[in-house]
Design a protein around this nucleic acid. Structure first.
Lengths: 250, 250
DNA sequence: AAGTGGTCTAGACCACGCG
DNA sequence: GCGTGGTCTAGACCACTTG
């Protein structure tokens, strides 16, 4: 037997997915709640297993639900961190300014791990910006509340940082930017290019991302007061964990 | 019969997807190229149809491929538009500044359609920012090269714009901001909150998004010189069509 | 007309989790 | 141990695109 002769406008699996999405977005199903499982959907709608799975996969790929093996499918949560771009302009300057999206206050403890510092040959895009492919690279991963949220790779011109604390494992108080300042190359201007896309496999692993989670990719270039580029920083953020904030004037 | 007794590390459909992804990311398969179809994969790997589909669905949900009914599955392309946040800081100021990501030059013709102007009661988040829920709302959709790329909804305090050209269908030269200026409420400061997520169903329709495409959601608040909020602008961008650029000082 | 992807059924074995 | 989701098979009918 096949389905009813006239497919009722939209396929069954879509109608089921739509209903569940509605329940999630309306708040009827809340963070961490369990969705009806495959067996429940099969019984309730009289459908085959594959069809029930297809319905659930829609929500999973939309990032609204997360499957847990041996347990069930659950509503996913969104608890972002607020990341300030141009902070100096944002702080209590425009009295009545209010944030639209809720986000945890900054200042939560970051954990840094998987720090690697290496001398490498930069890819073409980075080399073009820095004006040379001979670079030192600092890679690291940031976690908040034990969950990885950001990968970060910084590139520095080798001629500038060779043999300096910039390429040490621990860069000391104030971090890399303070050390660059001591070299007479304090970053003064920044350009950030922001994209969103689905993660690559290694990002999925390193950030422990469920299906349906995009990443935000930021390429930041730091310039000295004189306009000399001294760092390119490539960041990949779990999109479900971040709200970026930028403030500027007309 | 079932598969071989020991699942060889990773499931078949993943291995196939990994291979195809590799081919795409390495450039072996290029923009618009056709991927091996379901039948080809079934024959090549000796697998069932559902398994071949599962492999392809991975790439589709990652936004790397797009299925075309009756035709095949094709490599997707990424041709972004560059959107400048704080442009005033960016223009030729830091001589050697180079962009990392390619993007079409701005200035390509935008098309605006589906313009709707209505008086409404704002949601709580917008009302909190504007200091009241009585608002006028301007909705519109932007297209470039005939493809929809952005949805935009602007909220204005009704008390400020009631009966002014701000709420006319055509706002005239200089647009809404010029009209706000004539009202003595010229926007002078902006805050943008940026998120990325998977699209809601109506966004998928209005932006004609294939599966696996995230959207960038921007909430921009405009303030006068005195710090009075005069507009909240909620934008939803096709993430595959945009690179955002922000420039700021240390 | 042939080939493609879209939807759906009815089974199967598996690893995992939770009580 | 039982229910859960993860993977896979072997079929079917359909709508659509293309030569």
């Amino acid at each position: 037997m096949q389905q009813s002769p006239v497919p009722p406008e939209t396929p069954i699996y879509r109608r089921i997915a739509d209903g569940l999405r509605e329940a999630i977005l309306s708040g009827e199903l809340r963070d961490g709640d369990r969705l009806p499982g495959e067996n429940a959907l099969m019984a309730q709608y009289g459908i085959a297993r594959a069809t029930a799975r297809q319905a659930l996969s829609v929500l999973i790929n939309e990032g609204l639900a997360v499957p847990r093996r041996g347990s069930g499918v659950y509503v996913r949560q969104f608890r972002p961190i607020r990341r300030h771009g141009s902070r100096r302009l944002s702080h209590g300057r425009w009295g009545r300014g209010q944030a639209i999206w809720d986000a945890d206050t900054e200042g939560r403890p970051y954990t840094v791990d998987e720090v690697h510092v290496d001398r490498e040959t930069a890819e073409e895009d980075v080399a073009r910006v820095l004006g040379g492919s001979d670079v030192w690279v600092r890679r690291r991963r940031y976690s908040v509340d034990g969950r990885p949220v950001q990968l970060s790779v910084s590139y520095f011109p080798a001629a500038l940082v060779e043999g300096t604390p910039v390429v040490a494992e621990d860069t000391g108080p104030g971090g890399v930017y303070a050390r660059l300042g001591e070299l007479g190359s304090a970053p003064a201007h920044f350009t950030e290019e922001v994209r969103a896309r689905m993660p690559h496999p290694h990002e999925t692993v390193q950030l422990d991302l469920p299906a349906g989670t995009p990443v935000i990719a930021i390429m930041r270039t730091a310039f000295t007061e004189e306009g000399v580029p001294v760092e390119v920083n490539e960041m990949v953020l779990d999109a479900a964990s971040y709200v970026l904030q930028y403030d500027f004037d007309a």
